[in-house]
């Protein structure tokens, strides 16, 4: 569905992206992750033809994206809004027509959607008269008009209240079930773990990690253990300490080390373990490891 190969982008002398390659497969949910300023939004803008890339190939469905394909695309940008002086129905219908629907289809689609999200009685109101949450609902409706085959959501939960965040997740699930491909640009790791099949971690314009979620977790030390203890943790090659505070620690196991072996080793070295839980390493902790120092500086 999406193919990016040796993509590079520079603004003047500032290089934003360097030699980035990845694919998004049909029907999957792809997490495009990175800290602020890592180049995520720039990549999406180049993919959608808003910017011209300095080098590389960026294709959607085997060709560079053109606005003529807009019926196949649902895009929720990070910076988003609508024509506030227009009525809800007029603004939605306008985008529907731009996405290839007829005037009648666009109007009908909009009315059905407004009915679904409880805004049917607001159809003729100016958008600026709606509350922030209601405007977000309309924004989501515009994004998924015409049942797009590819949904690109840039920081989708940004600024959304809990109700609309729930609506967003439902919509993403629906689109997935209907066969849409979803690209999520985010740093909400809980969403990524719940929704994404594969991810790419972008750092300083380069891919820091790329693949299935489980593969990336494996790459950064697949298993972790959380334990409560008394005594002093030994220094060993079999694990690294992710977090250690007041007798509670999270450890990342080295490749091939089993949790039971670690527990035995700790007990044998005199550590009194009162609780011990094994799990896969969370994306959140991977994100902190990759971007931690950088984000503190921002």
């Amino acid at each position: 569905m999406v193919h990016v190969e040796h993509f590079a982008m520079a603004f003047g002398n500032t290089r934003v992206i360097e030699d980035l390659s990845f694919d998004v497969r049909v029907g999957e949910t792809f997490g495009f992750l990175g800290s602020n300023g890592s180049g995520k939004t720039t990549t999406i803008r180049c993919l959608l033809g808003i910017f011209q890339p300095s080098a590389g190939i960026l294709h959607i469905n085997g060709r560079p994206f053109k606005p003529g394909q807009s019926g196949e695309l649902g895009y929720l940008p990070e910076e988003r809004g609508l024509y506030k002086k227009e009525s809800v129905l007029d603004a939605m219908s306008y985008f529907g027509r731009l996405k290839g629907l007829s005037a009648r289809e666009a109007k009908q689609w909009s009315l059905n959607y407004l009915e679904r999200v409880g805004l049917a009685d607001k159809a003729s109101l100016q958008l600026e008269k709606l509350s922030g949450g209601q405007q977000q609902k309309v924004q989501l409706g515009v994004t998924i008009m015409n049942h797009p085959a590819l949904l690109i959501l840039d920081e989708p939960a940004k600024g959304f209240d809990p109700v609309n965040r729930r609506l967003l997740m439902d919509i993403i699930d629906e689109q997935k079930n209907e066969g849409s491909t979803v690209v999520m640009v985010t740093h909400q790791m809980d969403e990524v773990e719940r929704l994404c099949d594969r991810i790419l971690l972008l750092k300083d314009g380069r891919a820091r990690a790329y693949g299935a979620v489980s593969d990336v977790q494996e790459q950064f030390g697949g298993n972790t253990v959380q334990l409560s203890y008394e005594g002093r943790l030994p220094v060993e090659d079999s694990f690294t300490v992710i977090r250690d505070n007041l007798g509670h620690a999270e450890l990342s196991l080295a490749n091939g080390v089993k949790p039971s072996a670690l527990l035995r080793s700790l007990v044998e070295s005199g550590v009194i373990v009162s609780s011990f839980t094994s799990s896969r390493r969370s994306l959140d902790s991977i994100f902190v490891e990759v971007y931690g120092a950088q984000d503190e500086g921002e």
Binding site: G49, I50, K66, P67, G81, K84
Partner: peptide, 20 residues
């Protein structure tokens, strides 16, 4: 300016070419 002030530019540019 309206498109910019309302943050509509990006969405609209995926549906129609800037020159059009």
């Amino acid at each position: 300016l309206e498109e910019k002030e309302n943050r509509v530019t990006e969405m609209i540019l995926t549906t129609i070419d800037a020159s059009n």
